[in-house]
Design a binder for these strands. Structure first.
Length: 660
DNA sequence: GTAGGGTTAG
């Protein structure tokens, strides 16, 4: 049968027509739907028992086919299907409002909602309508209307309805009234898992993270019902900068869930990813692939786990995910493509990142920011700036983060004037208020270029309070350019601002020492001793197969430890003959005092390199990621090792990616 | 023949 004829069902069978209507779920089905609708108009008299259900089905079908005006027309027509209006119940309104909320058209949903009551008793909102209306109030921050609805609901005695209560909790919390939300929650006679989820999510969305975690814990302890995927997703926004014990607690609840739905896995992955537990995130993802019962990673899963892959330079896991994405034909998908591009860039594979970027059919500011930042971190500042200009040429508006990327690129490439110009255009042309990150970039840019006093003046005149990163950038610049006077000011500010921040201590005490301020040196050291502060242990991470291996300074815990040290001895012996001398290197590169001690044992990046040389075949690039900035000694050693072994070494530290 | 909480990239 030809397609055009299939649009005109020549049947008088109302049930068959209704089945046809119900099967129309996509815009492609619209012609069939219109034909069936026309036929129904001829067949159904208002008295027909199927008239009212037919209208509901028609509205649903039009909505499912993204034909909301048509759905609305069915609702509004005092049509032959239902002339009397007595069966024009609220149901049709509810279905259409539901379709509007699903399409995030909350204003339209609310407009339709307020039009119901004036149309008479048959159209009065009911216990199905109120939750939808409250949801739209929550989404559009309509506290006033929300309050009106909630009090109307109470007068009708519908506030005991759990659906109404849950949406009221959510509405209050999202409209900035978490205490009112809690009052509704507290007043409920019987709470089910959704009640708890609504309250957890409510506190989380209102920014009351500790309260959210408290309620989560109380819920788990109560054991009257068990957390589900909704609970996991609700607690997630409250776990942005979570305590280790809270993450453990959530993980335990996750482990105890009998049926782990996709969203539970995704939420647990996101909690790890958002808290810097990159290894845990990748491990959990691999476990999900292996033992996740009935779950298949979706685009959310992959977009969540790709950033940790990038952080760890887990290239082979990332690459495999990319292949799966291609095989499952999940592209084009902006979210995934952006995540892939960034993953490759962070794994040190600028070429692959560029390939993803070039292959994209559409690019947004995030895509451009990722590629700009990739070129910047790989030391190609000039290209990064060209890309930024190209983005502007395409008519895309840079946002705050795009400016961080381009300013950082300018700073890496020493493009002082370009950076200054961009910083100026941020406010003058794009009306973006610079944040601490932007000021840090500018201080870094000025400082590296040797304009220390200008950088200092910049800090003293900036409109927001300089944070420790801003002072840290200045201190670093003072160290490079040996500016004691300003360096000491930066050190003082840092010491005052973040006495517990360990990362700067070595830099700080050296600065005081060089300025001859021995009392301050002693005081920094005693603070370190008193607080039991140890330097952040230097760690290097490498990926081998599906496993991630971590090495610490002087590490002897690895099963292959003996082989690694043997290999390293052999390598160091060979490169000594090429002019490598650790002691001399240490002095030349002004290695910090504790790093000198470190030379007695062995820096983690050397162990990691030796480990990969043993375990990979010749020609395989060596990728190492570290949690600190690499020292000059290791950089030089890596360079020589790269020469004698003919291996490409990609060393990623906290600041940039070194291709050796 | 309808309703509540909830995951994603720079």
């Amino acid at each position: 049968m030809r397609a055009s004829r299939s649009h005109l069902p020549a049947t008088g069978d109302v049930d068959a027509l209704l089945r046809l209507v119900a099967a129309c779920r996509a815009p492609a089905h619209l012609p069939s739907l219109r034909a069936a609708h026309a036929r129904l108009l001829l067949l159904l008299h208002p008295s027909h028992p199927s008239a009212a259900p037919a209208r509901v089905k028609l509205i649903q079908a039009y909505a499912a086919c993204s034909a909301l005006p048509a759905a609305h027309a069915v609702l509004e027509s005092s049509c032959p299907l239902d002339r009397g209006g007595t069966t024009t119940t609220a149901v049709c309104f509810n279905v259409l409002i539901r379709a509007l909320t699903a399409a995030s058209l909350h204003r339209d949903a609310l407009r339709l909602f307020v039009s119901m009551r004036p149309r008479g008793p048959a159209c009065f909102p009911d216990h199905y309508t109120y939750p939808l209306a409250l949801k739209s109030c929550a989404a559009s921050k309509e506290l006033l209307l929300g309050l009106q609805i909630h009090s109307a609901v109470a007068k009708l005695g519908l506030d005991a309805n759990r659906y109404v209560a849950h949406s009221a909790i959510s509405m209050y919390a999202r409209c900035g009234r978490p205490e009112d939300a809690y009052r509704v929650f507290d007043g409920m006679q019987h709470r089910d898992v959704v009640s708890w989820n609504a309250m957890i999510s409510g506190f989380a969305r209102a920014g009351l993270f500790e309260r959210a975690v408290e309620v989560f814990k109380e819920f788990v302890a109560l054991q009257c019902s068990i957390p589900d995927a909704g609970t996991m997703a609700s607690i997630l926004p409250a776990m942005g900068n979570a305590k280790a014990e809270d993450i453990l607690f959530v993980r335990k609840a996750f482990d105890e869930m009998q049926f782990k739905e996709l969203i539970s896995w995704n939420a647990m992955l996101a909690i790890y990813a958002n808290n810097g537990y990159h290894v845990k995130a990748v491990e959990l993802f691999l476990r999900m692939e292996k033992d996740g019962i009935g779950v298949k990673p979706d685009s959310v899963t992959l977009a969540t786990v790709l950033p940790p892959c990038g952080e760890l330079s887990a290239f082979s896991v990332g690459k495999r995910i990319h292949e799966n994405i291609k095989r499952k034909m999940m592209l084009p998908n902006l979210l995934l493509e952006n995540a892939l591009l960034d993953m490759y860039a962070n794994c040190g594979c600028l070429k692959d990142a560029r390939e993803v970027f070039d292959s994209m059919s559409a690019r947004d500011v995030i895509s451009w920011t990722s590629i700009i930042s990739a070129y910047g971190k790989h030391g190609h500042g000039r290209e990064a700036v060209d890309l930024f200009e190209k983005m502007l040429g395409q008519g895309l508006e840079p946002d705050s983060i795009a400016f961080v990327a381009v300013l950082a690129a300018c700073s890496h490439a020493g493009l002082l004037d370009v950076g200054k110009r961009y910083f100026g255009s941020m406010t003058s042309r794009y009306h973006i208020t610079p944040k601490a990150e932007h000021y840090t970039c500018m201080v870094d840019l000025l400082g590296r270029a040797g304009c220390i006093s200008e950088a200092y003046d910049f800090i003293t005149t900036m409109p927001i309070e300089p944070n420790e990163r801003v002072w840290g950038a200045l201190l670093q610049a003072c160290r490079i350019h040996s500016n004691m006077d300003i360096g000491v000011v930066a050190a003082d500010s840092l010491f005052r601002l973040v006495p517990e921040q360990t990362g700067y201590y070595v830099l700080l005490s050296n600065m005081y020492a060089r300025a001859g301020r021995w009392a301050d040196v002693t005081s920094v050291r005693s603070v370190m001793a008193n607080k039991g502060i140890k330097k952040l242990p230097g760690a290097s991470i490498v990926e081998l197969g599906d496993r991630v291996h971590t090495f610490h300074i002087g590490d002897r815990y690895h099963p292959q430890s003996e082989m690694i040290y043997q290999k390293l001895d052999e390598l160091l012996g060979r490169i000594r003959g090429m002019g490598y001398n650790p002691e001399v290197e240490a002095t030349l590169h002004d290695v910090e005092e504790e790093d000198k001690e470190g030379h007695l044992s062995v820096h983690s990046e050397k162990l990691a390199i030796a480990f990969l040389l043993i375990n990979t075949s010749p020609g395989t690039p060596i990728r190492v990621t570290m949690n600190l900035r690499t020292c000059g000694d290791c950089h030089f050693a890596a360079k020589l090792i790269s020469t004698i072994t003919s291996r490409e070494i990609i060393l990623k530290d906290t600041n940039r990616i070194h291709h050796i």
